[in-house]
Design a protein around this nucleic acid. Structure first.
Lengths: 335, 335
DNA sequence: TTGTAGGCGTTATCAC
DNA sequence: GTGATAACGCCTACAA
């Protein structure tokens, strides 16, 4: 593979000059530039990014760590990141930590030794303090997580508002007895969604009933288990809000298994607007989590703060919105 | 960030020795090794992968190009690749080409200039010749595609057999009038699936009827359109095989919209066993495409051929298998 | 077993 | 404008 040296020889100029035309840095006469370009063309020259990195102390790469590569959420985030970064000629190194603290830390070490210019992390296992400490070593932006001391480097959703909107959608269709299957309460996002749910209830004068609440772990099976548990009490409900779409899907299956017809007998609302939400039957009404936007924004934050690209407006917190599909029906008479 | 030089100073040895303990290369006395390790620890030394690459002419990175980052197929492939490679301490640089020839070529250029040690490509737009040519420049392995001249560097599924199995599953439940919604016939995989479909028919003495065939483009909307078109003819069918799961989903929705009850009035079988297949209603019976395995295998091929890892058995062609769920019912009497 | 020194392909700082 | 030349941080013969 041709090097800058061979190009300089063929063009009859010095190394430095070749380097200059590559980087459009200092002014180079048009004539010289043409000669160099010509030589590059002839040799099929491709700059060696590695050597550039070593010399310039810039790798033009950003490391990404996500929990799962094949989760429905991740793909959208990734797409948002990659699109944005590629336009700026940066590249993405990707790892996944599977929500295990040790693995996550290992991945981060790995990315650092690769001399990434910055990190984009979507992690739950690692502590706020660790992240804060890390961010003093290398520019770090967080996906779907908010650490106050580094707020400008976080992207997140207003989960409380999302939880509110979801339940509100049910209430607006006349539902008064509404169950909730949530994620783990120690996770900030699921906790907030749950709080939003309660706010919607309160606002409409509906009393929160603990028997209508089930805490799951965001898996489809938790939706199923939650639904069964909810049904096992004597309290009837016509609406069901879920902490995410997976659990909604599980609950819907379980409901049908109980002989319910959806959405007539039970209205369901999810959260995240994951890709498969519109493949469900009935198509799931849910809350858009703007995964793509978060990925895009994370990339923009880095473009702006690390690569000094101007004219970028950053929006750190996203407003959830209701994606209205077919899983909510007007409430039937309570039987 | 500490360099090898500082480590050598603190440890009171030479650069070379430090380098040696890092690479476990030549023998180093235990005493020296301990001193060096100690010094590294103290300084929080992290090897600079960039400098290592430049010096050793090895980046330990493999470039991956896929069509879409957020497709349901991709995540699994990616997970297979990353898992395998990370264990070997290689890393993954990722790009997406969106099925546009120009973009795909750009991505490849990009990965090459990044001096990846090898490439893993999942592409349709680019020609066999181009890939063949490319593989003379850099080790290249193909996902879900077979180019004869580089067969050992391809991973693929026996699509014909898959198409056969899908339709066979329908036939086994008594269906005799079976429609087919396929992908574009110029794509090798969808063509083969279609051929398999026809083989199953022929084998059972069922004549292929062109009016029961619709050619789509693998999108959900094509499934919908295909179903409508199929219904618009006067020929009735009780079974429907689709070229992929997306189209199956579209067709199922369209069928319900026509008032059919699934799977009683219509049995459907998909292809790919995409993540959301089990979220569909009824849960989709389909053909497993072993996306994860293909990714894993692609990584193994590279580990073996580029990084000289021993003891790896490679299986280039995967056998499809039926994932039996709930979307196929025994045939009703033809009305 | 350990040290010396040249090289990997660029960038960047000087001079001219 | 252009050309030497010293970094950048590490690897690897070759010597010792």
């Amino acid at each position: 593979m041709a090097t800058i040296y061979q190009v300089s020889e063929l063009a009859g100029v010095s190394l430095a000059t070749v380097s200059r035309v590559m980087n459009n840095n200092t002014k180079v006469s048009d004539k010289t530039r043409a000669k160099v370009l010509q030589a590059m063309e002839e040799l099929g020259y491709r700059p060696n990014a590695i050597a550039q990195s070593l010399a310039s102390n810039r790798t033009n790469s950003v490391g990404v760590l996500v929990s799962e590569l094949d989760g429905p959420f991740f793909g959208q985030v990734m797409e948002g990141i990659e699109n944005e970064l590629r336009l700026a000629n940066k590249h993405v190194i990707i790892t996944s930590g599977h929500s295990e603290e040790e693995k996550e830390k290992q991945c981060i070490e790995f990315l650092i030794s690769r001399r990434c210019d910055a990190l984009i992390l979507q992690v739950d296992s690692v502590s706020d303090e660790y992240l804060l400490q890390l961010s003093t070593t290398i520019p770090t932006v967080l996906i779907n997580r908010k650490v106050d001391a580094m707020a400008e480097f976080c992207t997140s959703l207003d989960n409380e508002q999302g939880g509110y909107l979801a339940t509100k959608a049910l209430i607006d269709k006349g539902h008064k007895s509404i169950a909730y299957i949530g994620g783990p309460d120690w996770k900030a996002d699921s906790h907030e969604r749950f709080v939003g749910h309660q706010r919607a209830l309160t606002e409409s004068g509906i009393e929160f009933n603990d028997a209508l609440y089930f805490q799951g772990n965001f898996k489809e099976t938790d939706g199923r288990d939650g639904f069964r548990q909810l049904m096992s009490t004597s309290i009837r409900f016509t609406g069901l809000a879920c902490g995410n779409d997976e659990m909604a899907s599980g609950a819907m299956k379980a409901a049908r298994a109980c002989g319910l017809v959806l959405p007539n007998d039970l209205s369901v609302v999810g959260f995240d607007n994951v890709t498969f939400a519109r493949y469900l039957y009935p198509e799931l009404t849910t809350i858009d989590n703007s995964a793509f936007s978060m990925g895009k924004t994370a990339a923009e934050i880095i473009l702006k703060s690390v690569y000094k690209v101007e004219d970028i407006d950053i929006q750190n917190v996203f407003e959830p919105k209701l994606i209205d599909r077919n899983s909510i029906e007007f409430t039937p008479e309570l039987k």
